[in-house]
Design a protein around this nucleic acid. Structure first.
Lengths: 242, 242
DNA sequence: CGCGCAATTGATTGATGTCAATTGGAGTGG
DNA sequence: CCACTCCAATTGACATCAATCAATTGCGCG
């Protein structure tokens, strides 16, 4: 099952795995499904019996607000991200998961994951950790939405996505593919589409980054990070015993 | 150790505990400390060796943004909330925890908690669950900050806090004690103090709630919830096998 | 009584949303 | 290859919302 390789790599970024643990993960039943741009992979209000992992593409957690079609994207997920471990214990989805680009996604039954947490508590903790990192990212976003200027907020997001992409080998020389629509960008920043567009133009005008098609290129990471008041601690990209 | 009673009650709200599990929890070493309003109980950037649980009072997770003293409150915690399980695996705090009112807080060593996750995976999952619920609340807040009008956002917060207080027996007849400053309220809603004040007045003017001193009284929960577009699913207040 | 902090107010500026076009580019059928 | 369609990106004008600045009021407490 090469499909779980991204997961193994993702967990190993945070802590060492024993050979046994790696085997356990490789033995996970993995049902691969493809989703095309715009498709919903997990529905708000549903009670999933499997959790899913993004193997390639870009997925978003989406929450619908009010009855006028407003929505907020509360997380973005790339290859190696366990998008939906939350439903393992939360049972009822409080949000939906949508493909923003074509995605390959692997589904694994809840009972097998629970089994892993029982048999190897350390692996269980690493899964737990993965959801804790999601939560840390959510806090960072919350602070961004609430307290940063729209330009700084966008810059912050770009710094984060670059480092996350870079960590899984998806980034080039200060550049990465970010196939997100300005409408969707607005939904993640808590801005209208029009303002998302203007914010993006403002950031381009500073010369700190280029954004052509879906390719984002950072001119100077340190200056961009300074502009965004970005501190990567919350991404937990370093390896520690957990 | 009667100090962990709030924790046991909190976990039991979500799933049944066996007698053994209850004993394990009761045997947790519990160092009780008092914090007065404004005091910091966990510092951003630190590496705690204990996790803490609020026994009484009101605590907030705070994130500092930029260098002009801006800050965002990313969570509020009341009696029975395990405020700082996050540091158990995250290691470095990405936020600090502050007392908004005088608090009694219990600290438990990380190694004992890790030990529990190893010995009783089910209890480990319930601790995990507690952080997942925190994350679900964070998502709801994110959607509120990003997509709701300030009045609806405040109404949403009130609905949430009422149900949470009610669940631990801290609410009266549609009322509860909410000792939060308008400045702090602004920091949780992502608004300036002045605007927090005006939003509060606006909500008072609708007649949906009263707020005298620190006592919040909801006139009509259903209408308030409708106004706020509030759906309690994310609070996971029902009991399920996890 | 007076200090100090929280709450409140008014005036003004700045940021963001909304509405309504227009432009641009990719894909499609002729 | 061209006309056409669709959707994303962009623009301008305008209306609202929210931040800021600067007082002022209210209240608990020594």
């Amino acid at each position: 099952m090469t499909t779980v390789v991204p997961l193994i790599r993702a967990l190993e970024r945070r802590d060492d795995l024993s050979a046994d643990e790696r085997v356990l993960l490789e033995q996970l039943p993995a049902r691969t499904r493809k989703f095309s741009k715009g498709q919903e992979m997990v529905a708000q209000g549903s009670r999933p019996r499997e959790s899913c992992l993004v193997v390639s593409g870009l997925a978003a957690r989406v929450q619908h607000v009010g009855d006028e079609g407003r929505r907020q994207i509360t997380a973005l997920h790339i290859a190696g991200d366990f998008v939906d471990l939350h439903s393992l214990l939360l049972k009822v989805m409080d949000h939906s998961v949508v493909a923003l680009a074509n995605c390959d996604v692997v589904f694994t039954p809840h009972e097998r994951l629970l089994d892993i947490t029982t048999r190897t508590p350390h692996l269980g903790r690493l899964l737990w950790l993965s959801t804790l990192i999601d939560a840390a990212i959510q806090r960072a976003w919350m602070s961004s939405i609430g307290r940063r200027s729209s330009a700084a907020q966008l810059a912050h997001l770009i710094c984060e996505m670059y480092l996350r992409m870079e960590a899984v080998g998806l980034a080039g020389e200060l550049s990465f593919d970010f196939p997100i629509t300005q409408h969707e960008l607005g939904d993640t920043l808590g801005l209208s589409t029009v303002h998302a567009n203007r914010t993006l133009q403002e950031l381009r005008a500073t010369g700190l980054l280029k954004w052509q098609g879906s390719l984002v290129t950072i001119a100077d990471f340190d200056r961009l990070a300074a502009f965004a008041d970005f501190d990567a601690t919350y991404l937990n990209l370093s390896k520690e015993p957990r």
